[in-house]
Simulated scan of single mutants.
Amino acid sequence: MSLPLFDTEPQPAQPLAEGAVLLRGWAARQDAAWIATVRQVLAQQPLQAAFTAGGRPMSVRTSNCGEWGWAAAGLRGYGYTRSDPLSGRPWPAMPTFLQQQAQALAAQAGYPGFDPDVCLINAYAVGARMGLHHDADERDKAAPIVSVSLGLPCHFVWGGLQRSDPVRSLRLEHGDVLVWGGASRMVFHGVRPLPAGQHHLLGAERWNLTFRMAQRPYRG
Results as ranks from 00 to 15, higher is better:
134 H>S: 11
132 L>M: 15
112 P>Y: 12
106 A>F: 03
137 D>K: 14
141 K>C: 01
128 A>E: 09
99 Q>R: 14
140 D>Q: 12
105 L>Q: 09
148 V>K: 02
126 V>L: 04
145 I>Y: 02
100 Q>R: 14
99 Q>H: 14
151 G>M: 05
128 A>L: 12
99 Q>D: 13
101 Q>F: 00
101 Q>G: 05
126 V>W: 07
152 L>M: 05
133 H>C: 12
106 A>T: 04
120 L>A: 09
118 V>Y: 06
133 H>L: 10
140 D>I: 08
98 L>W: 08
145 I>R: 03
157 V>H: 05
101 Q>R: 15
141 K>P: 04
145 I>P: 04
150 L>G: 00
101 Q>V: 04
97 F>G: 01
123 A>Y: 01
141 K>T: 13
119 C>T: 08
100 Q>V: 00
148 V>H: 00
133 H>S: 05
112 P>R: 12
105 L>K: 04
156 F>Q: 06
130 M>T: 08
126 V>I: 14
155 H>K: 14
157 V>Y: 03
126 V>K: 06
118 V>D: 01
154 C>Y: 03
130 M>R: 03
155 H>V: 00
141 K>M: 12
135 D>Q: 07
109 A>I: 10
145 I>N: 03
156 F>R: 07
116 P>G: 12
149 S>W: 00
156 F>V: 11
156 F>P: 10
151 G>V: 08
109 A>F: 08
120 L>H: 01
146 V>S: 12
112 P>H: 10
132 L>W: 03
104 A>S: 12
119 C>N: 00
128 A>I: 12
148 V>L: 06
114 F>V: 13
112 P>I: 12
162 Q>P: 00
118 V>R: 08
115 D>Q: 14
126 V>D: 06
134 H>Q: 14
141 K>R: 15
127 G>F: 11
